[in-house]
């Protein structure tokens, strides 16, 4: 597996604030990564450091195995951080031409990328006349101009209306499907859950987890169960089962957390043998949100 970006013991202090604390992780080619963390957890600072706009306090990072300097590497990267920054007095096309000049790429991709983000009709309007959603889409077009090996997105749907959020997500999914490596920072978990294969969880600048999405907490899932008859029988039967670690009642359902792998058929069979007939049985895996909250609360 080719490593695109590698962070080693990265550290950043703003005065007394320790924004990034001894952070290490690798970005491998072809995966879609999410950086998760509450507001102010150091996500944007980390991205700022690897993008050459924030100075690190200590530690190191290297692009493409350290074979080229950071600013040369960034010509092969597409990145959007926070708000779209363009020259307000230039049109979309003029802005994109400038970026082509900086990145040393020809102009011929401009029309194609503008069509991809649905801005082709407005390509000769000045940037300052754009709505926030359009500005964000132009930012995506600009990040794609060089057909980047990795696309870095920091809160790409921040401040957008539902329609804008939907459009941006659709574009991200399209890009991910072409095999482009993506690094997506967000505090919106469903956003990450929908597109990412791997996550890095950060809180207060400290890495809590890095790895595949479904490995974030070692879990075998849980059952939602209910009966029409006596609930006490159900609870006592479940308590006796060796694979179930915890039972609690939520609204009108019982939640049985699994310690070991157990299929819905097996539990149904076991309960039926104990004379319990279920009215409701669903096996679920915890959502990323639940896992994230568990992780950030436990540590």
């Amino acid at each position: 597996m080719e490593t695109i970006l590698s962070l080693k013991n990265l550290d950043k202090k703003f005065g007394s604030v320790h924004a990034v604390n001894n952070l290490s992780f690798d970005i491998e080619k072809g995966n879609v990564y999410g950086i998760l963390g509450p507001n102010g957890s150091g996500k944007s600072t980390t991205l700022g450091i690897i993008l050459n706009v924030v100075n690190k306090t200590s530690g190191s990072f290297s692009w493409f195995d350290g074979s080229i300097s950071t600013h040369e590497a960034l010509k092969r990267v597409g990145a959007i951080i926070e708000r779209p920054n363009f020259y307000p007095y230039m049109t979309a096309v003029q802005n994109l031409k400038l970026i082509c000049k900086i990145k040393d790429v020809p102009y011929n991709k401009i029309d194609e990328k503008l069509k991809l983000v649905n801005l082709f009709e407005r390509k000769d309007s000045k940037f300052k006349t754009y709505s926030l959603g359009m500005k964000q889409r132009l930012a995506i077009a600009s990040a794609l101009l060089n057909d980047p090996e990795i696309l870095i997105l920091d809160e790409p749907t921040n401040g957008l209306d539902p329609q804008g959020i939907h459009e941006i997500r659709k574009i991200i999914k399209e890009i991910a499907s072409t095999g482009t490596t993506i690094l997506l920072a967000s505090h919106l978990l469903d956003e990450v859950e929908k597109v990412c294969t791997h996550v890095v969880v950060i809180r207060n600048g400290i890495k809590l987890y890095a790895g595949p999405v479904n490995g974030i907490t070692a879990t075998n899932g849980y059952f939602e169960l209910n009966v029409d008859s006596d609930a006490k029988l159900l609870v006592s039967a479940l308590e006796k089962h060796p694979s179930i670690s915890d039972i609690k009642q939520e609204d009108d359902k019982f939640i049985a957390t699994l310690e070991n792998e157990l299929s819905a058929t097996e539990i149904n069979n076991y309960l039926f043998k104990n004379g319990i007939v279920l009215s409701h049985l669903v096996k679920r895996m915890p959502s990323l949100e639940q896992q994230f909250l568990t992780l950030t609360n436990n540590n």
């Binding site: 993008l51 050459n52 706009v53 300097s69 950071t70 600013h71 040369e72 590497a73 960034l74 010509k75 990267v77 990145a79 951080i81 708000r83 920054n85 363009f86 020259y87 307000p88 970026i99 900086i102 990145k103 600009s142």
Partner: peptide
């Protein structure tokens, strides 16, 4: 004021350049 300096650097211009 337009924050384009930040964008220029991200796009691959070095501070020296």
């Amino acid at each position: 004021s337009n924050k384009t300096l930040k964008q220029n650097l991200i796009d691959g211009l070095s501070k020296k350049e």
